[in-house]
Write a protein that binds this DNA or RNA. Sequence first.
DNA 1: CTGAAAGCGCTAACAG
DNA 2: CTGTTAGCGCTTTCAG
Lengths: 333, 333
Amino acid sequence: MGRRVTIGDVAAHAGVSTATVSRVINGGTVAEATATRVWEAVTRLEYTPNALTRSIFAGRSSTIGVVIRDLSSPFYLDLMRGIEEVAATNDSLVMFANTFRHVDLDVAQVRAMDEQRVRGLVVTTGEASDKLTRRMAERGTPCVIVARTVPDPVPGMHSISLDNVGAGRLMAAHLARCGRSAVGVVSSGPRPSQVERTAGLRRGLADAGLPLPEEAVTVAEDEEGADLAVGALLAAGQARGKPLDAIVCTAGWLTVAVYSALVARGVAIPADVAFLTMDDFPWAATLGITAVDQPSYEMGRRAAELVVEAPEDAVEIVFEPALVARRSCGEQQ
Amino acid sequence: MGRRVTIGDVAAHAGVSTATVSRVINGGTVAEATATRVWEAVTRLEYTPNALTRSIFAGRSSTIGVVIRDLSSPFYLDLMRGIEEVAATNDSLVMFANTFRHVDLDVAQVRAMDEQRVRGLVVTTGEASDKLTRRMAERGTPCVIVARTVPDPVPGMHSISLDNVGAGRLMAAHLARCGRSAVGVVSSGPRPSQVERTAGLRRGLADAGLPLPEEAVTVAEDEEGADLAVGALLAAGQARGKPLDAIVCTAGWLTVAVYSALVARGVAIPADVAFLTMDDFPWAATLGITAVDQPSYEMGRRAAELVVEAPEDAVEIVFEPALVARRSCGEQQ
DNA sequence: CTGAAAGCGCTAACAG
DNA sequence: CTGTTAGCGCTTTCAG
């Protein structure tokens, strides 16, 4: 198993100094003959340069750090793919940490990334880590906050988000167009994106003369909560004497849970209830589910590009949502 | 933005030597008073230790490398979550690279991981990188190959896989039990797992007195190919005068494509054709899709544990598949 | 074009 | 208990 071969071993084997080996590998000016000899030694000894040591000189590594809330959500998954794609074309690797939606885990993870001296960081978690990322940005590590805007960005601290109010309006308009009037909402927690989407939905509905009473907005922390929420929403409509004719899910990762809860209760979609959700996903087409989609892959790409390009100022990019209309909200009228 | 603060800065600020600071941080024997002074300097200067430099001493970093074929496949996604979970509980980060199913990209990525001196490596790609991983294992970096067995493993080179022949047999038995007799297969490429599953299926079918002619096994490279394959399978059955009554998909990432192709062609599942696939996934329950599942999350955990525990010998773990029976193959008879 | 020497930020003996 | 002295593996002046 033995000691790993170092640049010194190669130098000795090729009869040159370590400086020369370094130059050969990094493309400095070296005599042809010397270079050949060095490369020979490199292959013979199977020398693999130590990227860690190299990074010490650069002051930072070449990897891109990513702290993600929930890999299994279609949004974050595509985001990740966008990031990875850009990283790959820039000879970077991605250092990855998943908070599994546990709040506060992210602070430790961001810190770990900082210790790893990542080239830049993409963060999709809450505001708890903002203090840290702000400091990182000030010290020259570009940080990109995804899925929300940043209160007071400092130079090097960027944000990539969706026009969530617009997304809500898009949903409202489509529902109105489809002749639905009694909508219930399943949202997830108090995160800005959720609040904004609900607000946009409410405003859009109001514009169409439709109400969205407080009690028609439920919150689900997990799959089970979503099932409960759907039950409650349906029951309340029944009790009110005006049954729900539409259910909106404002969080992509809850789509399966909400849709399945509906199906399990024998609700006919869209005959009884229209179903509208966030984030398009592979099965949506076949299931005929209408969704308001965000360009998650592209957002990932832009995030990684911001890390690579490291612009001086704070950049704030807001993407526009798009409606992908299918069958689950019925015919437009 | 300025220079990053180093251990030297902290030492100067606290009026001690760098060695003492190092000891304070890593928990050596230091006088209470000194320690307090050092910690004060650490917080005041917002010192963040450089994990890169630290790793130089350890000879390797504490991160776990993962080279994955295709993040969007349910199997690899859950595998990744299992790995990440174990990494997190071991204060490790995960360094990640996606080959996007491009063959040969993995060699470069494995090499990059080696340069990063990862603590260990989990590889889910083809045999092209085996030469490299074998060498890494010999030099003390545990490598875990997932989703296939390794021809001649060296110490430190492990494998985690599924009993694919068993999976094929499980499928065959279920189909036979459901009274299906004319099955078609959509598989993906010539990877060992695919070949083995098809072989197991064939043997299982034979045991039940059912044939699986060569032409009933199609190969799809991508979603479009899957659609074509389904079309061809259906047409061939028609031409033969004996229409297909079951379609098996041996690759989890093709499930959407194959299922959707069936639906798009107006095929009734399971009335006309039974549908059976590999790898359970969130939507399967609601869609009533029957699947042969592998414990992907657990496999990820074991893979990461092998990296962390780094056993001397080569470990080969074969997991057993499990049938998750739902509606898509009809009633059992 | 190439080598010697001085570090990068940190840890690990070894004295004291 | 703490400072001094060597390095870890590599890059980078600076001479020659």
